[in-house]
Design a binder for these strands. Sequence first.
DNA 1: GTATTATCTAAGTCT
DNA 2: TAGATAATAC
Length: 771
Amino acid sequence: MEYLNQLNQSQRMAVEATEGPVMVIAGAGSGKTKVLTNRIAHIINKGVDPFNILALTFTNKAAKEMKGRIEKIINSTESRNIWMGTFHSVFAKILRSEAEKIGYPNNFTIYDTQDAKNLIKAILKEQGLDDKIYKPSLVLNRISAAKNNLISPLAYLNDTTVQNEDTQSAKPKLGLIYQIYCDRCFKAGAMDFDDLLYKTNVLLRDYPKVLEKYQNQFKYILVDEYQDTNFSQYLIIRKLGAANLNICVVGDDSQSIYAFRGANIQNIFNFKNDYSNVKTFKLEQNYRSTQNIVNAANSLIKHNKEKIDKTVFTNNEIGNKIKIYRAGSDNDEGNTIANLIFDTQLTNQAKNHEFAILYRTNAQSRAMEEALRKKNIPYKIHGGLSFYQRKEVKDLLAYFRLVINPKDDEALLRIINYPARGIGDTTLEKIVSVANNHNLSNWEIISNLNKYNVGLNSGTQSKIGDFVLLISGFSNLLQTKNAYDLAHEIAATSGLLKDLYSDRTPEGISRYENIQELLNGIKEFTEEENELEEDITPHGLPEFLQNVALLTDADNEKEEDHNKVSLMTIHASKGLEFPYVYIVGLEENLFPSQLSITNRKDLEEERRLFYVAITRAEKELVFSFASSRYKWGNVTFCEPSRFIDEVDKDFLEFMYSNSTEKQTNNEFEFSRNKYFSKSKEINFSNSKQIKEQTPLQTPQQILPKNLKKIAPSAGISLPMTTELVSGMRISHEKFGNGVIEELEDGKATINFDAAGKKVLLLKFAKLTILN
DNA sequence: GTATTATCTAAGTCT
DNA sequence: TAGATAATAC
């Protein structure tokens, strides 16, 4: 029980109160993860089987890290048996084993947002509805909100309030679209993200035996980031915890930033009323940040009316004031930040990974990326368009999906004519219409063409027949081939590899490489099986796919990304911390977002978002804003964010002449150069020197444009590859030492002492030269 | 039915 | 700016 002595008093109390309902209000940086991990360890040490613990985290990565920490505390690998993960991944797992009960196959597909939107578009077309009025993203939001509040299509149609809302907004058919959408998903054996929670609720509601089983299983339940749970999640917890009532929720109302996806901050406010004899613990001491940062954050959040009373304080050093920079334009802002990072690295001997640039919207990353690239500062983008959303990757994944679940209509439509097979739009329209009339999936039609009168000529029929044979041929291999072999077979035989290979433009090459990377990833996944003797879960293609669907970018981090500056949205930064933090784009209509400034509730959420951003910083914090910014392709002028004014001036240091602020804003249009020169007044001792050192064309600059954007990491680590020659002895983190036998095309064939011959992509392989 | 080009229009945050 | 869609030519 040595670990208990490492905790402060309130932390320790929260850890030791293992029985009954417990709420932990944890201020930013107050050791929330420490409490969670120690609490779970403590429960296990008291004799509880880890299989009886359910812990819901915000990302799968957080779960993995926590398991590691618990393993250290309890000094046993038993920690791996804890049911720990995101709501979505844990309940997807449970749904897979219980799927037949609610009429789904256990190999059900998970539709991502794009699949869902495509389906909605198709429904709109069939119903003759205008997609300018019924914007797919809006429709999907509405459906998502309904599901998160557990409103079924039928309830939706029968709810007069909801119907009035839709009539008012001139979208009376939303209920009908919702209904059709659900039917289509069902017949495709598919669930969207919200279904994973919604269907779990259905399962627990309609099958008391199942509910009982999991109630008995999960004797202890812990929920991290409780302030960001929605009604659907709330109810799952309530039901599962009802038998034992050992429910511990941890959160911080000041960090609730997911209302847009249905999170209900009231869940945390109401916890005391939902359960009797709730023990509440407040963690108020911040161990992360300097006094200046903590106090600045407090002074900001004071402006919110709705919050739980608490006083976050720190005994850390006072630290520097928050510096505020003004830039002339978005590009100028990027350069300013890149220069600051460069200088800070030199003066403080700081590593790249100690820096983070946080922004409100993904679109802001570009200016930052360009500036960092110019200064040769390695960076990684966290979030944004993830690898798995790239077209070519989705295409191959769609083949996998269809092979595993042929009813998956969205996957089928995506690839039936890619690569081109002469099955065009007209043919597909016929098939889809027959499928809808019979309430069957498209696959059921095309695999039984003679049974249904689709009205196709014999040429088209035989093309479709070939496609059916192709897919069912792969399906037959599911039992015999491992994930990698089957994946490779599919990529090759489908013609996808060949199609990508034939495109020798830089973009085409990068697409081909992305497929190679995907296949490499599957290979690694396949080989994991042999590495852990006790790991008995099969590692076939279905298992790989299930893994992939719910991966967040955070779960995907590559080893070679370790020492890089992090770029991410503030939402993605939740739960993370960095010594040096730059919050950029602090402008009205951007942060706070234009869409949020019309009502208090939304504005308060934006303010909490800013609070989250500020509290990521440990040592130093910088704010910046630009006076002009490209939006929709043209320049717009911006005013500094109101949030800057809301932070107490005692903690701020303006790095530009603040006294003329008001006038200069108005003057701006007429004196643009003035501001450009102003930002140059900042003295970057080393920037000039570096510019001259930097070669005109660095390796990353000749990379294909889209690769740079999607996988910036790919470019930055390149220089190393030039140092490699065959015959060289190298070391690889996973495979150990070996000799390079062949170097070609960005790939290396390496003969490892222990692991044997492997072909690795240099771009991704982390090799250390031995000598 | 396919491939190429021209035009449109959309950018808020995420599982 | 870029991805999606429409229009055009083959």
